[in-house]
């Protein structure tokens, strides 16, 4: 085993702080700035301040702040997992890091083929960011994925990637793919092309938001029921809220959050590798190399 020096331990502690501190910061910010709730309120992210900017102001909201919290925590997690990585020592965190890398690489290779093996970090980024964003509800923070802007940004990035890989088969081939059965279908194809990122964004956003909405409604309903059934004194304390929302949270936050992250990553892989015209790309590359040779 590697000699664990005090320096090593100090860096470890620092990295763990780097993971924990942002989350604590988010919780403190939430407690400090959240106004007392007034009944049933389903609203978007709270705006901390607005930066005036051309075309449209930039509101710095909870979703942005929580996204940055996730980014910093993930950076800390990555540094922690790979800290003291070595060929001979076998620590638990190293096993974990290896497992993540191998699982994601195998998944990407299995779903996208050899050509897209470099997509591993991107898919892992989508999985990590999406899952951890959704899981923020477990510590009582606003999940950034229930903001349409956040998910739309990811979907647009995926759309850019899809189009980029479609263009690898040549612009003419790309244009031709819109007039697939007959040129009359071009508008339909265009709509379905644009529907891809829109549906991806709305799917993720809708799932997380529906969880929030149903959780809020159930909590409010339980409060009402307990107020009605338990009389004027005991009804003030919402006893029925104790156990039931936890089950809902288990489904909506843990299961649905992770599942949506997985589905977003899966759809990204399928769309990008499905849109890539492998034969056309091969033909084009062959022609180009021939031209270069001649």
């Amino acid at each position: 085993m590697q000699e664990k020096t005090s320096r090593f331990r100090a860096v470890d502690a620092l990295l763990i702080l780097m993971i924990v501190l942002p989350i604590l910061f988010g919780i403190v910010l939430q407690i400090a700035t959240k106004p007392p709730s007034e009944g049933i309120a389903i609203s978007g992210a709270r705006i901390f301040f607005t930066i005036p900017f051309f075309f449209q102001d930039i509101p710095i909201t909870e979703s942005q702040v929580n996204s940055w919290i996730v980014v910093v925590a993930l950076l800390g997690l990555c540094l922690y997992l790979t800290h003291g990585i070595a060929t001979k020592t076998k620590t638990r965190r190293q096993h974990f890091a290896e497992m993540i890398v191998e699982k994601v690489t195998n998944m990407v290779r299995g779903n996208m083929g050899e050509y897209f093996t470099g997509f591993g970090p991107f898919i892992a980024a989508i999985l990590g960011l999406s899952a951890f964003s959704s899981l923020m509800t477990l510590v009582g923070l606003y999940p950034p994925t229930s903001d349409i802007n956040v998910v739309a940004g990811w979907a647009i990035l995926v759309f850019i990637l899809i189009t980029y890989y479609k263009l690898k088969g040549g612009i003419l081939h790309y244009m031709k793919s819109y007039c697939e059965p007959v040129p009359l279908f071009a508008p339909m194809n265009l709509v379905s092309e644009i529907a891809t990122p829109v549906s991806m964004a709305f799917r993720h956003y809708g799932n997380v938001l529906s969880g929030t909405v149903i959780s809020t409604l159930v909590a409010a309903a339980l409060q009402g029921i307990s107020a009605m059934t338990l009389g004027w004194f005991w009804g003030q304390i919402p006893f029925l809220q104790i156990g039931i929302p936890a089950v809902l949270s288990l489904y909506f936050d843990l299961f649905s959050g992770c599942l949506q992250a997985f589905i977003f990553a899966m759809l990204t892989m399928l769309y990008v590798s499905g849109g890539f015209p492998a034969e056309q790309y091969e033909k084009r590359r062959l022609r180009r190399s021939q031209k270069k040779a001649s």
């Binding site: 978007g44 102001d57 930039i58 349409i148 647009i156």
Partner: peptide, 27 residues
């Protein structure tokens, strides 16, 4: 002050796009 449940803001979209790229680079 809160945002509407559905409100589209281009800069917010851009910020989240950059966040994803950042995570990608970190990973």
């Amino acid at each position: 002050m809160t945002l509407e449940v559905i409100s589209v803001n281009i800069w917010q979209i851009l910020i989240s796009l950059i966040n994803l790229l950042l995570i990608f680079l970190i990973l």
